[in-house]
Simulated assay, not measured.
Amino acid sequence: MPLTALPDYLRGVGVELTANSDNVLRCGLTAKHVDVPGLLAVTSFRAAEPARRTAHPASAVEAEYPSPAEEFRLSRLHPTAVPTRIELPTPQILLCIAGHARLSAPGHPALDLPRDASAYLRPGAGPVELTGPGARLFRATTGAPARV
């Protein structure tokens, strides 16, 4: 079978954060209540371009994606060899999607984040420093934007 290029809709990175909701219609792959007729009644099967969000620079190493949800914030980090200080006023999750990043904090062993690895940063655990020239990460936080 000859190798072919992937269609455009199969390229790129998709990161999804969802707010709490009590209006979920499940259609399968769960032991919870499944409501296929309810899902079909509200689903459109017309082809459409996916909605895309554009990141806005928040600092030299961070770009933030605007969201109508107040519960969370999503940003993209491009750390450098110079340590970037990350404050931890809220819970945070870092997901490394390219390269290799390193988190360090005084009194703790460094944590390496290779591609496809993630880390949970506990609120109030003090600031951490992020390095990783060439690395790309996504950061999910709760509440107001947590700047770097």
Rank of each mutant, 00 (worst) to 15 (best):
S21G: 11
F72C: 07
L77K: 06
R76W: 00
F72N: 05
R102N: 10
S67W: 10
T18Y: 09
A51Q: 14
S75H: 03
P127H: 08
D116W: 05
D112E: 15
D22P: 13
R115F: 00
L95I: 15
P83H: 08
T4D: 02
P114K: 05
S59E: 03
A69C: 02
T84C: 06
Y9H: 15
H33F: 03
S59G: 12
F45G: 02
L39P: 01
T90K: 07
F72T: 04
A135S: 05
G14L: 15
A98G: 13
T43I: 04
S118Q: 14
V61N: 08
R52F: 00
V148S: 03
R147S: 00
F72A: 10
R136V: 15
R11D: 02
C27K: 00
Y65E: 03
G99F: 07
P68E: 12
Y9W: 14
A125R: 03
L17H: 15
A19R: 14
V15S: 05
E129V: 10
R136A: 13
V148A: 07
A31R: 08
A48G: 12
P109M: 12
C27G: 04
G38H: 04
L94K: 10
L40F: 05
S75M: 08
G132L: 11
L121C: 01
P89M: 09
A19S: 15
R76A: 02
G12D: 06
S59P: 03
L3K: 03
